[in-house]
């Protein structure tokens, strides 16, 4: 596939370690900005940024409102905020009502990213226990974006990837190892 301009890694229950391991494999020079959106316990924002940063070659940064989106950085969505992407390619945070009981809502982030990046967006949905993300992927797919679900057979909780697959919102279903190879194939 062609090289995307933005990659979103999203998930909920059972996704944390899979995404963490992926981020650890990215080289510091990875040119594509990567955005991580996970449902986390509202109170457990105990310095994820520091932990991931120490374990990774690439810079990991928790998003501050209106940060410019740049390559060479993995951006973490802060817990208890929705995350949007503006067409000027800056992040906006929002504390409006949860969607599908979730804040951040994966759907909202992917939808807003899809409107900005269109076919240049790669969105990957991992393990999770609800249906958040499926509509976001569908929107991205309809705008020409690449949409991938983690193989439900491999996912710790298959509800989230299955919901997206059932909705026909997914271009490819891949195992974690294949997702890793795909992401590393974009590294120069």
């Amino acid at each position: 596939m062609k090289t995307p301009e933005l990659i979103i890694l999203a998930g909920s229950a059972g996704a944390f370690h899979v995404i963490y391991e992926l981020v650890k494999k990215l080289p510091a020079s990875y040119a594509i900005p990567v955005v991580v959106v996970m449902h986390r316990g509202k109170k457990q924002d105990n310095n994820l940024e520091g932990l991931w940063n120490n374990a990774s070659e690439i810079i990991v940064k928790e998003i501050t409102d209106k940060d410019e989106i740049k390559g060479g950085i993995v951006y973490l969505c802060p817990s208890d905020y929705h995350l949007f992407i503006e067409k000027e390619k800056v992040f906006s945070l929002d504390v409006s009502e949860p969607v599908l009981f979730s804040r951040p809502s994966i759907d909202l982030t992917i939808q807003s990213a899809a409107e900005v990046y269109k076919s240049k967006l790669l969105a990957i949905l991992f393990s999770g226990a609800n249906q958040d993300g499926a509509l976001g992927l569908l929107k991205s797919k309809s705008l020409g974006g690449e949409t991938i679900a983690q193989d439900p057979n491999e996912a710790e909780v298959d509800t989230m990837p299955l919901a997206a697959i059932t909705l026909n919102a997914v271009n490819k279903t891949l195992k974690t190892k294949e997702i890793e190879l795909l992401m590393l194939s974009f590294a120069k």
Binding site: F84, I85, D94, S96
Partner: peptide, 9 residues
């Protein structure tokens, strides 16, 4: 106002 948030509202 931030456009993405406003649009969603």
């Amino acid at each position: 106002y931030s456009k993405s948030s406003l649009k969603r509202r």
